[in-house]
Design a protein around this nucleic acid. Structure first.
Lengths: 223, 223
DNA sequence: GGAGTTCCTTGACGCAGGTCAAAAACCGCT
DNA sequence: AGCGGTTTTTGACCTGCGTCAAGGAACTCC
């Protein structure tokens, strides 16, 4: 099995496809190497396909004229992004750039369309995938509109501990400044909130490694 | 053609289906009458199907313990909501209630699954539909995180004028207090911002009817 | 080892907007 | 027309957090 096929077969989008289908997808896609902090596409650019992260990490974000940015999503290996524009010729609704040097697989829209229509499984996977993203956005909107920064941070920390071996220890996969953008706040404010949580004995920080000392309190803070 | 079939055939989800399919869908669904401000479902409740608005208006929202709420979406006639849970047994991610007395068509998940898998067109419609909603959420997140209230209101007003006959006149379909929830602010703040815009000669208000006097300025304010 | 970079923290300050309270306008009903 | 209920407006007050500025800390590259 080719390396591309191996990556593709591990992506949730393509679960349940035959080995032959995977091979044909591997034939369709092309590889892109992206340097750290390089732009992959900008909001408003015409969209011709979607991406799958093979290695590295990518952020999807919006920014305004003053350079303030909000991160919508962070994608690691075997996650896909920019599927949305595939379904109506519209331009990308947000920008993407690499937070680490990355290797991506790119699937052009045109070649993909045929595969999708031939495979009900694939449509259903994509539906589940989009539905999942909608849920996450829902949570993010709720956070921004209804919670203040300490609650947002608390629920993010709890979220990070979920689906993970050790329940009381997390490692941030993002620099703190970027985490601030993800939570819709400023680095300064985030730093202060971290300090307060440490002060209160709820967490302990060593660089990007965080220990949860009082999970119950964290849950209470998250609302 | 039955009344249900007529409504179903006007919904974007079901475009391109045969008349016979529409009839079979009409057979699947059931009608629910909902009084103004009645709850349709609450966040966290198990989800067994999705809805289509036949008459009236429904809001999808989240609220926290203190009763603060953020409106995620407002649906009018021939719009569908709560499609997301159809694709994974998960509970509703938000609550829904009627902002006006409404009649809804309800499609149970189980009966629907069969129809979906039989109709690639339907999957593609749903994909387009979900993609559309993702775009809207993207905008909402951007608004909340990157813009202040006047900019949010300005872009909402501009949005309302789009897809509409008269470009300089809009009628709010929501009470102002609810609009505040949609924009992620309080009725008091919204009222003040409206007053400032009127003062500045950008708009004129007569109850729920708003005239745009200076569209360019509104666009500038929206960022 | 020193000189940039990039990232993080801390302090001081100001303001957008949330909250509380009360008045005013509006609405459907009888 | 008048009444009880919502909805909207206005004023006064207060606070969370964004911003500016400056100092550390950690990492990379000669």
């Amino acid at each position: 099995m080719s390396e591309y096929a191996a990556i593709i077969s591990r992506c949730s989008l393509f679960q349940g496809l035959s080995e032959q289908d995977i091979r044909s997808l591997a034939g369709i896609c092309s590889e892109k190497k992206i340097a750290r902090s390089e732009l992959i596409f900008v909001e408003g650019a015409p969209a011709q396909g979607f991406y799958l992260v093979a290695q590295g990490q990518v952020k999807i974000f919006k920014s305004n004229a003053e350079g303030k940015e909000i991160i919508l999503h962070v994608c690691g290996p075997v996650e896909s992004f920019a599927e949305v524009p595939v379904f109506h010729g519209a331009p990308y609704p947000a920008s993407a750039s690499a937070t680490q040097a990355s290797r991506l697989l790119y699937f052009p829209r045109a070649e993909l369309a045929e595969t999708i229509s031939r495979h009900p499984t694939l449509s259903l996977n994509m539906l589940a995938n989009l539905a999942q993203k909608l849920r996450r956005f829902t949570k993010q909107i709720e956070s921004l509109a209804l919670k203040e920064v300490p609650a947002r941070l608390a629920s993010h920390l709890i979220y990070l501990t979920e689906n993970q071996k050790h329940p009381d220890r997390v490692t941030l996969r993002l620099p703190k400044g970027q985490l601030a953008n993800l939570l819709g706040t400023s680095p300064e404010t985030l730093s202060r909130v971290f300090a307060r949580l440490t002060e209160a004995g709820v967490i302990r920080m060593e660089g990007k490694d965080i220990s949860i000392l009082d999970r119950d309190e964290l849950i209470r803070l998250a609302d």
